[in-house]
Amino acid sequence: MSPAAGLRGLALLLGTVAAGCFQAGNPAGATAGQAALSGQSGGGGRLLTVTVPDVQHPEEFLARVTREFQVASGGGALLRYRELLQSDGQGGIRLDVTGFAPDAQSGFGPPAQELQATYENRQRYMVKYRDAHLRDALRARQNYVWEEVPGTTTVASRPCQVYRARSRHGFGTVEMSVDVDSRMLLGWALIDAQGTEQQRLQGAALDLSPDLSNVVWSQPSTVDHPYTGSELDHAQLGFRPLRADYIPYGFGAAQRLVLQPLDTSVAPLYLEVYDDGLQVLLVAQQRVTPSGGQPAGTLVFARNCTIGGISVAEGEIAGSDGEASTVYVVGSLPVDELNVVLGSMRD
């Protein structure tokens, strides 16, 4: 055997070993080869298997983006919101709702004051957690099969490449439309495991040289700091947080926070943020009065609801001090998966 052939054989062996390293989080044993180098190309619209694309997020740019957000409502209708996102590319963002349509057929009307107040209070969380992000490239590669739709599509008058990331663990698909030039994420869609589109955000117009001199940038609606496990944190929370023994496949902890709402009549919240590279899972806890609930590790009575592709499982669990906390598990996963997380909470 020639030396060149020997080197090629060694490279193949190492590639196989490296692919085996990326089987973490996949109980079915699918290989990372599915999301590795570009494989089959094809005519006739066949998807191309690709690796994780380069994606930049709108709030990282000096930009003004007009966009439309659609979400499936419980009644089968499609709620539509016209939004305006402005960002200075240095952390300053502002998200306003400029129109609302109660279904796919109606035209946009002015948003109600309550809706505007909702956006005012939640804009930072919506941009950070609702809007699709490539949160962790390694987890995104481990947990999703990435495919590219051949050709380009036009979003906000910009040619965009469309990528589809299908969860290896049955947690649905995230579709992304990425501007070819700037790599800005101009559109995305959240599709559940049954193939039903739950949320879609589509850019309508993009201005990369906006005049933002009169913009009032968003301010936090809570005062938050990283949770350190200190007695000071526990004193502020009023309890020692429970821990989840089960987290869905592929999800890793991204943040642990203590949130104090500006309205001090509202109890502080302990928040854990998990992500699988794309989708977010929130596990929050708050001390409630009057106390109730069963001790951790026994029985949890959970309230379940799913709307717009977002599932909620909440229930009261008593800690070792006999006092109860309400635990909220919220995410775009099937609600039963959230129930498992709830049932795994322990002191």
Partner: peptide, 15 residues
């Protein structure tokens, strides 16, 4: 719970 869900895009006030 409703506020957390709304932060992830669940419909809030209009419906």
């Amino acid at each position: 719970a409703r506020a957390l869900a709304a932060s992830l895009g669940a419909p809030s006030v209009e419906r």
